[in-house]
């Protein structure tokens, strides 16, 4: 039986997803932060700052207010059943975004790049960003990430080979790029961050893969053994940098590293690095004809 979209119901469900994502951190991220706080030296700035961040998380949830005032780029990964109108889904997401802005779950964050004028409602050219895929299930899955500007500004892309890093077109080269990028980021991306990486692709698809990684669970394993090994090694080595929470120094510079690979052209080898701040706001919604559930 074909899935029929009730646009109003869907719009209201998306509004709730935006509210949830802006005001509540995923449980696995909170657990990783708590572990990091407990691991820092007693009396250190790192421990104190992680404690304040966690306190903020509790307060934001209790008050239903944004965890961070930079409610970021709204990135929607939508998976739909066959035959659903993309335009209707898009329109519902846009309306939910406008409403979420009016209700102060989102800060007006869409600025015309030519005139500098803020549209005031978070909509504009490619804003919010919506990425569509299709599946067999009679449901719409919507994954939303709110990615702030501070961490987007330290996100970056390398082109291998890179002679300054002596990084070749292999996983060792990828490793060197990631160490370099996180060192350059210092505390600016609101450390401790979660690092999404796309290996290969072109400049756009590599970065989409990097951002897709940010939806993975903190403690999961990469199904590709080579990448899993690299993720584990980087998690240990990046935390040796000593940058610490907000760059104040400490043992926790990153909370996780997630790497995906994309097919590339013979001529290109990009390493795309998406730095996500500690306020790693992402949630998932499953919308069927009869019910809505959130992770």
């Amino acid at each position: 039986m074909a899935f029929k979209l009730n646009k109003e119901k869907f719009r209201d469900a998306v509004l709730e997803l935006i509210r949830l994502t802006s005001t509540e951190l995923p449980r696995d991220v909170i657990a990783a932060m708590e572990k990091a706080r407990d691991n820092e030296e007693p009396g250190s700035a790192a421990k104190s700052v992680l404690g304040s961040m966690l306190k903020n998380v509790v307060m934001a949830k209790a008050d239903s207010t944004p965890i961070c005032q930079d409610t970021g780029t709204n990135i929607h990964f939508v998976t739909i059943p066959e035959g659903i109108s993309l335009r209707k889904v898009e329109q519902a997401i846009i309306e939910a975004t406008q409403q979420a802005t009016a209700e102060a779950y989102l800060r007006p964050n869409a600025v015309d790049s030519l005139t500098g004028k803020n549209t005031g409602d978070n909509t504009g050219v490619m804003a919010p960003y919506i990425h569509f895929e299709e599946w067999d299930d009679p449901a719409i899955k919507l994954q939303l990430a709110l990615k702030g500007g501070g961490c987007e500004n330290v996100s970056t892309q390398y082109k291998l080979p890179d002679t300054s890093l002596k990084a070749g077109r292999n996983l060792e080269g990828v490793y060197k790029c990631i160490i370099d990028a996180i060192n350059k980021a210092q505390g600016l991306g609101c450390a401790p961050g979660v690092i999404g990486v796309g290996v290969g692709g072109d400049r756009a698809t590599g970065m989409i893969m990097a951002k897709k990684q940010l939806f993975r669970k903190m403690g999961d394993s990469n199904p590709v053994q080579q990448l899993d090994d690299l993720e584990q090694k980087l998690l240990v080595d990046l935390n040796k940098l000593g940058i610490g929470p907000l760059g104040f120094g400490g043992k926790t510079t990153v909370l996780g590293v997630k790497i995906g690979a994309v097919h590339r052209l013979p001529a290109s080898f990009f390493v795309s690095i998406a730095y996500m701040c500690w306020a790693d706001r992402h949630h998932e919604m499953l919308f069927t004809e009869s019910e809505v559930s959130y992770d």
Binding site: S52, K55, N56, A60, T65, D70, P108, N118, G187, W278
Partner: peptide
């Protein structure tokens, strides 16, 4: 504390005025 927006907003007891709101927009 970057990202601790609710916690920091609570220390703001009063907004006494705003300058250039129309021209710059809320964030600026």
């Amino acid at each position: 504390i970057g990202g601790a927006a609710t916690l920091l907003a609570k220390s703001v007891k009063k907004v006494t005025d705003v300058i250039k709101l129309e021209e710059f927009g809320v964030p600026e």
